[in-house]
Simulated scan of single mutants.
Amino acid sequence: MSDFLQHECGIAMMRLKKPLQHYIDKYGTAFYGLNKMYLLMEKQHNRGQDGAGLANIKLDVPAGSRYISRVRSVDSRPIHDVFSRIMPRFEGLTTEQLQDAEFLQREFAFTGELFLAHLRYGTYGKNEVENCHPFLRQNNWRTRNLVVAGNFNMTNTDELFQKLVALGQHPKEEADTVTILERIGHFLDEENQLLFDKLKKDGIDDHREISARIGESLDVQKILTHAANSLDGGYVMCGLIGHGDAFVMR
Rank of each mutant, 00 (worst) to 15 (best):
M14Y: 05
M14E: 11
M14V: 03
M14S: 08
M14Q: 13
M14T: 09
R15W: 01
R15T: 15
L16G: 01
L16E: 04
K17D: 07
K17R: 11
K17G: 09
K17H: 09
K17N: 11
K17C: 04
K18G: 00
K18V: 00
K18Q: 10
K18W: 00
K18E: 03
P19Y: 04
L20W: 05
L20Q: 03
Q21D: 13
H22M: 01
H22A: 06
H22W: 15
I24A: 06
I24K: 04
I24D: 00
I24P: 02
D25W: 01
D25Q: 12
D25H: 09
D25T: 11
K26V: 12
Y27H: 15
G28P: 05
T29V: 02
T29K: 04
T29G: 03
A30V: 02
A30T: 01
A30P: 15
A30S: 13
A30H: 09
F31A: 08
F31W: 06
F31L: 10
F31M: 05
Y32W: 10
Y32T: 13
G33S: 06
G33I: 04
G33E: 01
L34D: 05
L34G: 04
L34R: 09
L34Q: 11
N35R: 14
N35V: 07
N35S: 13
N35P: 01
K36M: 09
K36S: 11
M37F: 08
M37E: 04
M37V: 01
M37K: 01
M37A: 05
M37Q: 03
Y38Q: 11
Y38D: 02
Y38A: 03
Y38M: 07
L39A: 09
L39H: 08
L40R: 05
L40M: 12
L40E: 11
M41Y: 00
M41E: 07
M41T: 08
E42V: 10
E42W: 06
K43W: 01
K43D: 13
K43R: 15
K43A: 15
Q44R: 13
Q44N: 14
H45K: 12
H45V: 06
H45I: 07
H45D: 05
H45G: 00
N46Q: 15
R47A: 07
R47L: 12
R47N: 15
R47E: 12
R47C: 11
G48L: 11
G48A: 12
G48I: 10
